[in-house]
Write a protein that binds this DNA or RNA. Structure first.
Lengths: 218, 218
DNA sequence: GCTGTATTTATGCAAGCGTATAAATACAGC
DNA sequence: GCTGTATTTATACGCTTGCATAAATACAGC
């Protein structure tokens, strides 16, 4: 009924930002469904209800689009974890706990996120630019973590020398990454919240402090 | 001088096992150099000094070859980690320590390994068969780890109930995976042996026991 | 040495890929 | 309403890919 006789596709102009977001969203949908290899220019365009040529109008090359999608996912995860902090109590230990729990639960711990992340990590190896982008993200995350760790230690009346907080950040970052990985790959093997609990417990052990202010056995 | 006029390529027949190994090795070399995307049938054949058609003679499809290569890498890593155990002292705590250290050092903690692993994880997402294969490998590793943990706990005179060892295995597996990841991605950011030390320390904290029998501050 | 067969090469095809380019069209500004 | 331009579509090119098939060849068994 939309007078589709055999004519040219009708279209609406959209703002640049809107288009970019839509194309990135379509890319992520493709990756989620069929993996990075399934994210072809044609498939992405189809998903975004747009013709392939338009992609090139907004992204010089397909790799640029993929890169933008990667950054979008990482940013989204960072924002989501950050949101958990804003809703957290003032206590530094509770904040660290909330941060960890957020990273080890929905929507961050999600197979789709892992799929895109892994596809990127595989690329990083052969692409210095991507490698740098990734390193920045990694260091950013670890720095944020180190601050939380430092404050938690101080709140517990423990010393927090840089030399130690660095080590702790490395170890705790590993715990979060490792559990995130396990959860993404085989979430069904764990009870609801089990990985978050495991993570918090392990981190408490590493830091030698409790992250729970009031009651409740670990 | 080898009478290469313009004639057909001369060749030697090789045993089936030898050929498979060579093809897998060539595949890994391609992945190492240009990532999974660089591992095309033609490139692999070139690297193995063979024509592309031969690949199909030994592997029904390219995915089968890639899958075999993945399994080969995982097996190799398992063997290498196992070798560290055989050379380790009898003490269960030292064995756990050696196992962790082996996994967080050369040649296991290597960017090439990560690249192949990540490429696979990205594939796994859309392929149930590969997903199952991966899960088996993961569980195998964790079970091996759980045994080491149990023995280390017992050697330290601590209780080792299944409920606890499972949790510990999950957490410690995460520590190893996470640190392995960090090391593969940015090995140059860490001092020699730093990640292994960090891992052992964190694991000691989680288990609440020391893994060093004699002296030496952590 | 001859012969049969398992192994290897050579050739080619059909499909899908990313990208380039020109024509069409929606919409803002006057 | 008309016009100019930024946006979008349409089309097609060249390349690479995985895979199929037929011909050639090395080598084992006699």
């Amino acid at each position: 009924m939309t007078e589709q006789t055999a004519t040219r596709k009708s279209f609406r102009r959209e703002g640049e930002d809107k288009r970019r977001e839509d194309l990135i969203a379509a890319t992520l949908a493709c990756v989620a469904e069929r993996g990075l290899a399934g994210a072809t220019v044609r498939e992405i365009a189809l998903r975004a209800d747009v013709t392939p040529g338009l992609i090139r109008y907004y992204f010089p090359t397909k790799d640029d689009l993929i890169g933008a999608a990667y950054r979008a996912v990482m940013d989204r995860m960072t924002v989501q974890a950050g949101a958990a902090l804003e809703n957290a109590p003032d206590d530094a230990r509770a904040r660290l706990s909330a941060f960890v729990t957020a990273n080890l639960g929905q929507p961050i711990m999600d197979p789709n996120n892992l799929s895109l992340w892994a596809g990127f990590i595989a690329l990083v190896h052969a692409d210095p630019i991507m490698a740098a982008a990734h390193r920045d993200g990694y260091l950013g995350f670890r720095d944020e973590l180190e601050i939380l760790i430092r404050e938690a230690l101080l709140a517990a009346g423990r010393p927090a020398e840089p030399h130690h907080t660095r080590r702790h950040a490395i170890a705790i970052n590993a715990i979060i990454d490792g559990l995130w990985l396990e959860g993404c790959l085989a979430g069904d093997m764990f009870a609801e919240g089990e990985l978050a609990e495991t993570g918090v417990s392990a981190i408490e052990a590493v830091l030698g402090i409790s992250l729970q202010i009031e009651g409740g056995a670990v």
